[in-house]
Amino acid sequence: MIVAIAIVRAKDLFAAAMLFAIYSLLSAALFAVLDAGDVALTEAAVGAGISTILVLAVLAMARRQERPKKGHNLLALAVVVVTGAALIYATLDMPEFGAPDNPPQVHVGPYYVEQSYPDMGVPNMVAAVLASYRSIDTLGEGFVILVAGLAVYALLATPPRRRKKRRDHGQEESS
């Protein structure tokens, strides 16, 4: 959490990126504590790995320093506070953390725990749910990453043509 604040405050984007990686590792650890091994592994690989590399690649091209902003954005603060208040309000009636009789633990969830091995002989329930019970979601996930690949490819595969083109555009628009 402190790391998160530091990210927001950091003017040096490079430092922010590094802090971001640390934050990802921390949340990965938190996931591991919460029994989510698969998620922890993924978060570590993605958050600390890929995201950071990509951010650094962008920063290599753009200004490293964030330009200081004039004043504080009160509207943004208000929106965030309202959202936060709504979230806090929502938690008031949430079931107790970690209790075994919470709704998720009594409905649907137990089926996976109990039936996935008899159904398919796979001990990792996460894999069973991921690839079989909810496999259309995972197919969707595959498509999401494919879309990202296609979109980034569309955006960056053509070598850039600088400035000149831009000036032409300016004139075209202003005419």
């Binding site: 909810r134 999401v144 879309v147 979109a151």
Partner: peptide, 16 residues
């Protein structure tokens, strides 16, 4: 949740 996943497919494609 499936709605969310497909929402993201269409959104990301739209951004592109």
């Amino acid at each position: 949740f499936n709605i969310f996943v497909f929402l993201e497919i269409s959104s990301l494609a739209t951004y592109g």
